[in-house]
Amino acid sequence: MNIRLIAFGIAKDILNTSKMEVALAAPADIKSLKERLTTDYPGFADLAKLSFAVNEEYRDDDFTLKDQDEVVIIPPVSGG
């Protein structure tokens, strides 16, 4: 299955792009995506926190991903 990643802030710098497709073995959840990303891009392991959103909501590690899901990488926020 493929998911579409959207990156903001430092996540964009780590991936060197704001959008990319990732192939994951099904079944996949946020946890497996996180493991995959930190393996392929060690810069993610150095972050203070790494969160993910699907359909504009934060999702926990056990949230199941579907083929063609759009997953937004949320590095530590710093608004205000």
Binding site: F8, G9, A53, V72, I74, P75, V77, S78, G79, G80
Partner: peptide
């Protein structure tokens, strides 16, 4: 806002 809102500086 500083904890939860997806805005980066």
């Amino acid at each position: 806002l500083k904890e939860t809102v997806p805005i980066w500086k």
